[in-house]
Design a protein around this nucleic acid. Sequence first.
DNA 1: TTTTTAGTTCTTCTATTACAGAACTAAAAA
DNA 2: TTTTTAGTTCTGTAATAGAAGAACTAAAAA
Lengths: 156, 156
Amino acid sequence: MKINLTQKQKELIEKFGVSLERSGSSPAQARVLSLLLVCEKAELTFDEIHLSLGISKSAASNAINSLLLMERIEYHTKPGDRKRYFVNRIGQIEQDFEQNLNKLLEVNVLLKEILATRSKKTKQFNSNLQRVIDFMEFLQTELPQVYKKWSKKKSK
Amino acid sequence: MKINLTQKQKELIEKFGVSLERSGSSPAQARVLSLLLVCEKAELTFDEIHLSLGISKSAASNAINSLLLMERIEYHTKPGDRKRYFVNRIGQIEQDFEQNLNKLLEVNVLLKEILATRSKKTKQFNSNLQRVIDFMEFLQTELPQVYKKWSKKKSK
DNA sequence: TTTTTAGTTCTTCTATTACAGAACTAAAAA
DNA sequence: TTTTTAGTTCTGTAATAGAAGAACTAAAAA
């Protein structure tokens, strides 16, 4: 049940894995995601994942469940087959782009609150802060339009 | 040398601190950044920072140096004064927006490499991946324009 | 009914992070 | 010259994270 990976594939899994680690994934999560991106098969079972990556079942189980929770992977089942077939939800990245706007919004609420409590004396500093707030508000109107433009382009 | 912070200020430092921690800062880094944003004074010395936050000198030293390295804070000096006056480079966030495009680019290079090595059999998966690659390329042309629009708006 | 499968959960171990406190240092002040 | 200032560096430690391995479980197969 262990999948044979070429040297190139192993290399890509590590490279992309490190890139994922840098943006917050744990090593095991990063490798599961990478495997599900690089591997010839798009759908892999639990055993294929833990055996091919050479990680323990517990590590695989925890990584897989957290990735399911984060909606970065999903699974399919097949009639008369108890196994789950896990798939990288790579397309999700597009929707994530929209979601990130909400985080921006939250930060901006805090920044405004901070500016409101600041003394009016530090003029330069306050105007920098105001500019950042304005910039975030600007993004909040612009980025949805960018996304809309993309949707339009793709639906053609 | 310890700065008196109002209850409201302490609260904001914690709230914004948690927000920073969630995006990857250590607790001490997060608190230094928050203090330099919330505090009435825009410039604070080493002692003011470590005493006001109630963290050790070593914690403050390490946090400050890493933040300097990341260019999230900077410092000024004054003639005949050996102290450094640390400032939050909040305005940096605008430039960070541009910089983030480079990270996107790097990820996209990897994704293309991965797609190139994939078997042609998983058509649906590959076309999802291609779409993500296209989306990132789309962003690479669109986001600089968004930034340009912002610059224009602000220079008026 | 027993065995196998497809995982999950529990315990243990190790490595890393984050910090405190104390000792240290180089430059300036007294 | 001694002392103070403005930090830095070193040592120790507590908390946390990440993962291994073994024991467990529920459903299906034999």
